[in-house]
Simulated scan of single mutants.
Amino acid sequence: MEEQKPVGVMSRFLGSLIGRIRTLLFSVISIGPIPQHIAFIMDGNRRFAKKWQLEEGAGHKAGFLALISILKYCYEIGVKYVTVYAFSIDNFNRRPDEVQYVMDLMHEKIEAFMQEVDIVNRYGVRVLFIGDLDRLYEPVKIAAQKAMEATVHNTNTYLLICTAYASSHEIQHAVSFACQEKIDGVPAMEVANLEKHMYMGVVPDPDILIRSSGVTRLSDFLLWQTAKCVLYSPKALWPEMGLLGLVWGILKFQRNYYYMEKKKKLD
């Protein structure tokens, strides 16, 4: 036991040192504009497992740990909204056993996240599940509902989890409801009325969309909401993203901030 004490002391020292360096880094970055809303396509979990010859599911587990770290960094630096793409509607077309595996994994990770009391309570995170939630398997739907109910009074930061989601489906859903609704003196198809019925209408549009693994397509994710935001696609697979990947994304946002703001005003 005595031999382990120096290791414990060194570990705490390194943890404290890394924390101070991160705080200093964030204070420097905060001199510039900080995105209010960052969206992530968490791409590369399977390739990460294949790259390191890990067992099935290990890539998603590593991806979950990466998400926890990224959330902490985002909330520490002042990002209020974080949106992640968890499961597309198109994914339901996969083999039944594969869909069942992902649903089981999602159920497990929702419950695991709710055990991350440090994040949920320290940062006052409100969890919102976005998409056609009726398509979810019942255990996942129940877990998602419990997570939303448990955090409903939190308003400091938000985590939006897009599951059973596709942007084309979201737009179709919004158009359908907008056509059914009659507003006094306002045409049903005005943009403001359409956006009100979007699944993502509960939060501001993303300032930057980050897709890991170097892939540059949007994959039917937030097509409407990303019309005027910065896109960034680092080569790192999702479990490899880490602090530097996030920092480079924010720096890219800052480099394009005034140009994007000017474009918004012109539009």
Rank of each mutant, 00 (worst) to 15 (best):
Ser30Asp: 11
Ser30Tyr: 01
Pro33His: 05
Gln36Ala: 06
His37Phe: 08
His37Trp: 07
Ala39Met: 08
Ala39Val: 02
Ala39Ser: 14
Phe40Lys: 08
Met42Ile: 00
Met42Arg: 01
Asp43Met: 00
Gly44Glu: 11
Gly44Arg: 04
Gly44Tyr: 08
Gly44Pro: 15
Asn45Ala: 13
Arg46Phe: 12
Arg46Cys: 12
Arg47Pro: 08
Ala49Arg: 02
Lys50Asn: 02
Lys50Tyr: 01
Gln53Glu: 02
Gln53Cys: 08
Leu54His: 08
Leu54Glu: 04
Glu56Tyr: 11
Ala58Gln: 14
Gly59Met: 07
His60Ser: 05
His60Thr: 04
His60Glu: 05
Ala62Pro: 01
Gly63Arg: 08
Leu65Val: 00
Leu67His: 06
Ile68Tyr: 12
Ser69Leu: 10
Ser69Trp: 08
Ile70Gln: 03
Leu71Trp: 06
Lys72Tyr: 00
Tyr73Met: 03
Tyr73Ala: 06
Tyr73Ser: 09
Cys74Asn: 09
Tyr75Thr: 05
Tyr75Pro: 14
Glu76Pro: 13
Ile77Arg: 14
Gly78Trp: 12
Val79Pro: 15
Val79Asn: 12
Val79Gly: 14
Lys80Arg: 15
Tyr81Val: 12
Tyr81Asp: 07
Tyr81Phe: 15
Tyr85Trp: 14
Ala86Tyr: 05
Ala86Ser: 12
Phe87Tyr: 15
Asn91Met: 11
Asn93Glu: 13
Asn93Ser: 10
Arg95Ala: 15
Arg95Leu: 15
Asp97Tyr: 09
Asp97Thr: 09
Asp97Gln: 09
Gln100Ile: 01
Gln100Pro: 05
Tyr101Gly: 08
Val102Leu: 03
Val102Tyr: 01
Met103Val: 12
Met103His: 04
Asp104Glu: 11
Leu105Pro: 04
Leu105Phe: 04
Met106Gln: 10
His107Val: 02
Glu108Ala: 10
Glu108Val: 10
Lys109Pro: 09
Met114Phe: 04
Met114Pro: 02
Met114Arg: 03
Gln115Pro: 00
Gln115Val: 04
Asp118Ala: 05
Asp118Met: 00
Asp118Asn: 02
